[in-house]
């Protein structure tokens, strides 16, 4: 009964620190994460835009290899890979003819026995995570889920597709204060990072701006693509917005690693474009990371009631309503 690990391309390249932090955390938790033997590319965006069989065959080959190796579940930390593997499993299990056809293509009998887990699901399944916390991650965080982690709803069947909260709950477990914000699942620009950097700068800028406006000290992500756009494209974002954003973007595993007292270097925090300033002395008030624009953290939230405290003839929130 072992859990396999599918790194995919980004974990070996642009998101090395995601992989480093995950493995550091899993080691500290005493959970082995063997890589799936002879894994291949998941097909990413390219395959399913070009050829349906190819888009299914690539993930099916990965999953079949995992099954053959005795893995009953597979952890897929990259949200895009997770989506491809989940969709493939869903489609093949729902269509016996298709399953046979794809099994023929990959020359292996894909059975669908191995579950596909994303990082939040995997961490959520670790009992008593709170007890592993050495230095509570006492920061205001904006949990950013992006587009693929919780969608499509019928296939991933994990958390709410529009207003997810699983990552927020995990952050609470490690002592963080997850904020209620509006851009949890908005698009970061994703694969347009290369071809339409201007689009990415605008979309990712909106995400950062809302997080900062609400007083977040860090954006927490679980997707290499999201990280790339929010972190590496920061100069483009700032140029378009005409202002500076110092808010760091860190992987969920890095935040967890810090809380577990793992050395920042082991978590790859030095690899980010936007420096993570609160890695030392975690207990200090982290005012340094906030931009001037967010000096009034909850500026937006209360101003309406400020100038007109009209007598509100109303009861409490409607949620209180009797059955």
């Amino acid at each position: 009964m072992k859990t396999g690990f599918y790194p995919g391309c980004s974990m070996k390249g642009s998101a090395r620190e995601y992989s480093e932090s995950l493995l550091a955390v899993s080691q500290a938790l005493g959970r082995e994460l063997p890589e799936i033997p002879d894994w291949n590319c998941c097909g990413a965006t390219a395959a399913h835009n070009l050829d349906r069989d190819l888009a299914l065959a690539l993930p099916a080959r990965i999953l079949a290899a995992a099954e053959k190796d005795g893995m009953y579940e597979v952890l897929v930390p990259c949200a895009a890979c997770y989506s491809r593997l989940s969709v493939t499993r869903h489609e093949l299990l729902g269509d016996e003819d298709l399953r046979r056809k794809i099994s023929g293509l990959i020359e292996a009998d894909y059975r669908g026995t191995a579950r596909v887990l994303n990082i939040v699901e995997w961490l959520g399944g670790i009992p008593d995570l709170e007890s592993k916390v050495r230095k509570p991650f006492a920061h205001k965080v904006a949990c950013y889920y992006g587009c693929l982690l919780v969608r499509p709803a019928g296939i991933v069947n994990f958390d709410r597709p529009e207003e997810p909260r699983s990552m927020d709950l995990l952050m609470k477990k490690i002592g963080a204060d997850p904020l209620d914000w509006a851009f949890k699942t908005e698009c970061c620009g994703a694969g347009f990072s290369v071809s339409r950097t201007d689009l990415v700068a605008r979309l990712s800028g909106l995400i950062l701006d809302d997080a900062v406006q609400r007083g977040a000290e860090a954006v927490i992500v679980a997707c290499p693509m999201c990280h790339l756009n929010l972190d590496m494209r920061r100069p483009n974002i700032e140029k378009l917005a005409g202002k500076k954003y110092n808010i760091p973007v860190i992987y969920i595993t890095q935040a967890l690693g810090l809380a577990m007292g793992i050395e920042p270097k082991k978590l790859g925090l030095q690899r980010h474009k936007v420096k993570v300033k609160f890695t030392q002395g975690l207990a200090k008030p982290p005012a340094a990371s906030i931009t001037p624009a967010s000096a009034k953290p909850t500026a937006g939230a209360k101003s309406a009631s400020g100038d007109s405290p009209a007598e509100a003839p109303f009861a409490g929130p409607s949620a209180k309503r009797g059955a």
């Binding site: 309406a304 009631s305 007109s308 007598e311 509100a312 003839p313 109303f314 409607s318």
Partner: peptide, 29 residues
Amino acid sequence: KDVIDGLQFERLASASGPTLGEMRRPSDG
């Protein structure tokens, strides 16, 4: 507070409602 449902709007618009039929929003009136 200012995202309400249809029945709540009926009460806001009703002469016998909490605002006596005046159109005022729940959060700050």
